[in-house]
């Protein structure tokens, strides 16, 4: 078939650069950053993180075409920092936030495990032995 491999949506091609920064020629302190093989998951996260910084005047993204696996992130700053630098700062801040969240999740999970959370029946089905072996008594979702 002539369909493209679906993994090309998220795997970089041979020698392909994941990020491309284009300085804006008409707007001061602005840049359009093309991020390849990523989607709204990353784009919207970065956009809203960038908008939280006082030195960012504008931050927005668009995914130009749903079949093209890249998005464009446009950033304008007040000049105290370059768009690429503030984007990097956004990433480091977010990674830090995710790391704290991760450790909090870990703590919560261990606390719940001690209370025996995992030992519960995971399927909400009464554990009545080999009722499935007899055949015919499936959970019929159809």
């Amino acid at each position: 078939m002539n369909a493209i491999n679906r993994y090309e949506l998220y795997v970089l091609d041979e020698g392909e650069k994941s990020v491309e920064v284009t300085e804006d020629t008409k707007i001061p302190n602005a840049a359009t950053i093309k991020i390849v093989k990523q989607d709204h998951t990353l784009a919207n996260l970065l956009r809203s993180q960038l908008l939280g910084y006082p030195s960012v005047l504008f931050a927005g993204y668009k995914a130009p075409h749903p079949l093209q696996p890249h998005f464009l992130l446009k950033i304008q700053t007040d000049g105290s920092i370059t768009p690429a630098a503030i984007l990097e700062k956004a990433c480091t801040d977010l990674i830090g936030m995710v790391a704290t969240l991760e450790s909090k999740f870990k703590r919560e999970f261990t606390m719940n495990n001690v209370e025996g959370g995992v030992q519960e029946d995971a399927y909400g089905v009464p554990t009545s032995g080999a009722q499935w072996e007899s055949g015919g008594s499936y959970v019929d979702l159809g």
């Binding site: 994941s18 990523q38 990353l42 990097e88 990433c91």
Partner: peptide, 8 residues
């Protein structure tokens, strides 16, 4: 996020 930093 880390890959983006690397790419930058």
């Amino acid at each position: 996020l880390a890959n983006l930093i690397l790419g930058l």
